[in-house]
Design a binder for these strands. Structure first.
Lengths: 327, 327
DNA sequence: GTGAAAGCGCTAACAC
DNA sequence: GTGTTAGCGCTTTCAC
């Protein structure tokens, strides 16, 4: 067993309470005794056991971030920023990857129930609005980047509809009228919202919406490739394609560049992941302010954890279209 | 406060000891009482508080994985596999990203000292061999994918020298004699070893080694681009380039494809990350068996944690050259 | 098969 | 300014 607070107290000739006070920078201890204690701690190479502290305080200073999958690059950016922000407040982030399985997700949420973590950020979830609301009554949770209809919990998202609207409007501004979209078919609200934005942009420009111009698949690069294959096989293939993620856009770009069929369509992706700058061609994208999102969600969540009044705001962050070679 | 084991005991008309036994599937409790307890647990929606359990047992069933950075794709693969393996044993993995800073690394290692985690896997480290050895005397740690000279701890790596040797030998087999290398200059042993392999392959084929054919930079895509710029500016530019990571190889490929200068060199990367299949061109690569590495390291580490004899083996996993468009 | 009770390492109320 | 002491929620010996 390790050296405990008791041994420090004994060796330093003070009580455990005093050692604890020094440990927690309690000012009510004289400089002199504090120094003795600190020296003893040093000498004994004492490290406070957080298990004891955690049990006593019923808190762990750890926040769980549930991630859909390792390939979710935007999420990595957000998590990085969450890490940094959390560190400022003395919190740690632990990442759990659900691999898009609701079983995994529930397994991880157990960490809330059994007090292993103080709160959780869901970066994507399979829970229903009801489940989320119920969870939020007892625990500090937040949704990040993916809103869920009918929930009343702290949420940070970008306005997906607006983002898509901006992208498609840019296409239209440059004269495109046959505009394809590569979306996902799993009912994720972010995709649904982006489809809304796509439709609205067409509508506002007096272009008729044609369901055939939307391809719906999964999230992978290969899905992007399939999207291009499908769209380019239409009788009147689109001259511009909007994809709901950068990875999808890259899949589209790869196939488009190789097809040799006529002119390559213009492409805009979504998320503005770092790879956009590196891919060949570089990919235009609707940027979500990952850093700000991470900072915002963690700051608020920690406030919720510390105080007892719960902020349940839905914060919408601004987006930005970044133009690169693909458009 | 939540419902505790005490309340369950009271409600069920048994002692806390019995409830605890049921919780831990201790067979020494009669089916009948067990059922009553289970029903009560259900009824009260009782969730055991792990903080209590952890303190008592002085273990958390959590393993820390220290990651160099979010961009380390092979690491993501390994971690995924670590997750899965750990789950089988009832352990969780928490990921900490050091962003290649030794300060962060030390901060995270505190989790070992303060008992927040039962063990740690370092996927890359700035600690010295001495520090690691010392750490390993008291804590269960393991090195994964990056060995450190002079350490005596559980380690899983691929043979970097061999992997590089294989790649470069393939180039030679196809008639290349001017072979460039894009390496890193930070002294990481994996890079050093790969340079050794590169040299040995040349030597064994009777090709003279020329220091000018090695470019040393960082780990990023841009470093790969710089590597190509440098190598292609040599009086006799290489016809084949071996890069110590896939991201570097992609940077090389991007610049090479765009330069228009003569014929595009053949390229082989390292790690075989998923993006190799998706990049344009697809990238040939030396594959590290990420899944097996993750499984191996976690299985052994958990064994070490549970038993008290420490396996300190250095396990070397086999590599494989995957050929794609870039070679 | 079950219960009483000690104690894991720590913090915080209370007393002095 | 410092010490005493009562737990936080759980597991586990030791009785019975």
């Amino acid at each position: 067993m390790n050296v405990t607070i008791k041994e420090v107290a004994k060796k330093a000739g003070v009580s455990v309470a005093t050692v604890s006070r020094v440990l927690n920078n309690n000012p009510a201890v004289s400089e002199k005794t504090a120094n003795i204690v600190r020296e003893t701690i040093e000498k004994l190479d004492y490290r406070p056991n957080f298990l004891g502290r955690n049990l006593r305080k019923c808190e762990t200073n750890v926040i769980l971030a549930i991630f859909p999958s390792g390939e979710y690059s935007l999420g990595l950016e957000i998590v990085k920023s969450m890490h940094e922000t959390a560190a400022e407040y003395g919190y740690d982030i632990i990442i759990a990857t659900s691999y898009d399985s609701s079983m995994n997700e529930k397994r991880f949420l157990n960490m809330l129930f059994n007090k292993t973590v103080d709160g959780a950020v869901l970066m994507s979830t399979h829970l229903s609005a009801d489940e989320i609301n119920k969870l939020s009554e007892e625990y500090d949770i937040a949704l990040c980047s993916e809103r869920v209809d009918g929930t009343n919990v702290l949420t940070v998202t970008v306005d997906d509809k607006e983002g898509a609207y901006t992208a498609v409007s840019e296409f239209i501004k440059e004269g495109h009228t046959k505009i394809g979209m590569v979306s996902t078919g799993n009912g994720a609200l972010s995709s649904v919202d982006r489809e809304e934005g796509y439709k609205k942009a067409l509508l506002d420009a007096g272009i008729e919406f044609d369901e055939n111009y939307i391809f719906r698949g999964g999230y992978s690069f290969a899905d992007g490739e399939n999207g291009y294959r499908y769209l380019s096989s239409l009788p009147e293939p689109p001259t511009a394609i909007f994809a709901v993620s950068d990875i999808l856009a890259m899949g589209v770009a790869k196939r488009a560049n190789r097809s040799g069929k006529g002119k390559c369509p213009k492409i805009i992706g979504y998320d503005n992941i770092p790879l956009c700058d590196s891919y060949s061609p570089t990919i235009s994208s609707v940027s979500q302010p990952a850093r700000d999102m991470g900072r915002e969600i963690i700051t608020r969540l920690i406030e919720n954890i510390k105080s007892d009044k719960k902020c349940r705001e839905h914060i919408i962050m601004p987006h930005k279209l970044i133009r690169r070679e693909s458009f």
